[in-house]
Simulated scan of single mutants.
Amino acid sequence: MGLFSKDIKTMDDLFVHTLQDIYYAEGRILKALPKMIDKASSAQLKADFDKHLTETEEHVRRLEEVFKMHGVKPKAVTCPAIDGILEEADEIAGDVADDQVLDAALIAAAQAVEHYEMTRYGTLVSWAQTLGRPDCAKVLEKTLAEEKNADAKLTKLAESRVNLRAAE
């Protein structure tokens, strides 16, 4: 199904499709994070990734809650964007031999994922409000706040330590 296919006729259809998109993305992220934890050498980066893994499990649960609240069965649709972001991250991580540089690359990859998630959750919050679903918006806002917080932590870690060590 293309973004503007005949299957998406209403704003509600678009909302549900985007829920399905981020549901798929969160599932892929759940599979990618343990690999990123294993590759990271920074103890703080490992801890941050591990914390976000736990948060991501909660994000999936919240999405399932929103599907239920909206009267739709949870279902994932392939998200080529997250597939591309994760594929690129895997390629770059495979090409980096220096552990310090690898940590910087992992942070950059994680932030690309976070930014994608922030766009999706921000859009979903807005659409939920527009569709008269403040209950759904409230649940989605929790995840949006966590994604923003994860991005800010990664920025702080990169700028305060990881990038400097990678540049040595």
Rank of each mutant, 00 (worst) to 15 (best):
M1R: 07
L3K: 13
L3Q: 14
F4A: 08
K9P: 00
T10K: 14
D13C: 09
L14N: 02
V16E: 10
L19P: 12
L19D: 14
D21C: 10
Y23W: 12
A25G: 10
A25T: 11
E26Y: 03
E26V: 07
G27R: 08
R28Y: 10
L30V: 10
L33I: 15
P34T: 06
K35R: 10
M36V: 01
M36E: 03
I37T: 10
D38F: 04
S42C: 02
L45V: 03
A47K: 14
D48E: 12
F49T: 01
K51P: 01
K51F: 12
K51A: 15
H52N: 14
T54P: 00
E57Q: 12
E58Y: 03
V60N: 04
L63M: 13
E64G: 02
F67D: 13
K68F: 14
V72P: 00
V77Y: 03
V77R: 08
T78Q: 13
C79A: 12
G84I: 13
A93G: 09
D95Y: 02
V96C: 07
A97W: 00
A97K: 01
V101K: 02
T119R: 08
R120P: 02
Y121P: 05
G122R: 14
L124G: 09
V125D: 07
V125H: 06
V125K: 08
S126D: 06
S126M: 11
A128K: 05
Q129A: 09
L131W: 07
P134N: 09
P134W: 06
D135P: 09
V139A: 12
K142M: 05
K142R: 10
E146R: 01
E146W: 01
K148Y: 07
A150F: 13
L157W: 07
A158E: 04
A158W: 06
E159W: 01
S160R: 00
R161I: 09
N163H: 12
L164N: 10
A166S: 02
A166R: 06
